[in-house]
Nucleic acid binder design. Structure first.
Ligand SMILES: [Zn+2]
Ligand SMILES: [Zn+2]
Ligand SMILES: [Zn+2]
Ligand SMILES: [Zn+2]
Lengths: 168, 168
DNA sequence: ATTGCAATGTTATATTATTGCGTTTGTGTG
DNA sequence: CACACAAACGCAATAATATAACATTGCAAT
């Protein structure tokens, strides 16, 4: 077997092994600490804050401190394995494998849930328009505040955004 | 004359009076504290952090505390007069007047400068695609990490984003 | 063995933001 | 005017998020 003895499910270990291979291919190493942090994020359904993660990692490594988790997170974000949602100070695992265009992170204003959508066409258009204005994109995440389908179904408030979708 | 005795330039006071009128029209009031905070942001070229702002507002109001400035900022952001740049914890005045679609905030990874671009077509397309996925946009700011024209000119590093603009 | 380097351990502190509660201020009502 | 009500503000404390600084470890190349 290929996995280490971390307390994760088989599916999670498979994901972690794949991530490790990706890191290796990029000349980086997914150390045990980093692997544990990534595993915890993979297990979490909805993303975690740094100090939540710290509390959980302390169950595995009693001597963990803030730098322990922030360093691991910095690494994982650099490697594109994890995304940081700035407006929530929250970290979510990327479930799309490596991608070369920014993910579209729909952040629900009501319930806080985050979904990573991918739209290469739209992101390509964004990159072109940015470039036309003299900017070069260097972006892995685009956060979009919105109302998620569930919350919308619960109470479909009328926002100013309707104007944008009405045509014209 | 219409302006209060705040220590701002004539141009700034004109801006503030306009903002006050806008608030009034929306049933809100631009109180003296809020006016001062907005004026300070208007004077600042590059956006300010809350505690920088606090230091400046203390020059005008010695008893100001964090809630003083955070409350004013919450109000100004709600009114669409100020934008919060989440990844920098920074606040920038909106120099585009009221807008009904999200501004595109180009945040330079190298120098930290922020530019508010407007692209109604692109934002409309974003809103349509979000809606097609079941989401309703409720978004005033879209932050885009990028390299600004100045920094790009200084050293035009090759990023993965090139792939996006090359066609295909 | 020595040096160099990446990762980690450890302590402390910096930065950003909010809570709670009491007071003031403005506004309308009887 | 007396009263009630709500919005804004003053103030003290503290919560939540993130980084600095420096020591230590482990491994690999010389
Ligand atoms: Zn992703
Ligand atoms: Zn929701
Ligand atoms: Zn704006
Ligand atoms: Zn720049």
């Amino acid at each position: 077997m290929n996995s280490t003895a971390t307390p994760f499910s088989a599916a999670c270990n498979a994901f972690l092994d794949l991530a490790r291979a990706g890191c290796k291919a990029r000349g980086a190493q997914l150390t045990p600490i980093r692997r544990d942090v990534l595993g915890l994020l993979h297990n979490a359904e909805n993303g975690l804050k740094a100090y939540d993660l710290l509390a959980r990692i302390k169950a595995l490594r009693a001597n963990a401190t803030p730098p322990t988790v922030y360093r691991a997170l910095d690494f994982l974000v650099e490697q594109g394995l994890v995304h940081k949602i700035e407006r929530l100070n929250q970290f979510v695992v990327c479930r799309h494998g490596a991608h070369t265009f920014p993910g579209l992170f729909m952040v629900c204003r009501r319930c806080g849930k985050v979904s990573e959508l991918h739209d290469p066409d739209l992101m390509g258009e964004l990159a072109r328009r940015a470039q036309a204005a003299g900017y070069q994109l260097d972006c892995q995440e685009v956060e979009i505040a919105s109302i998620c389908p569930d919350c919308l179904h619960a109470s479909p408030a009328q926002g100013f955004e309707q104007m944008l979708t009405g045509g014209a």
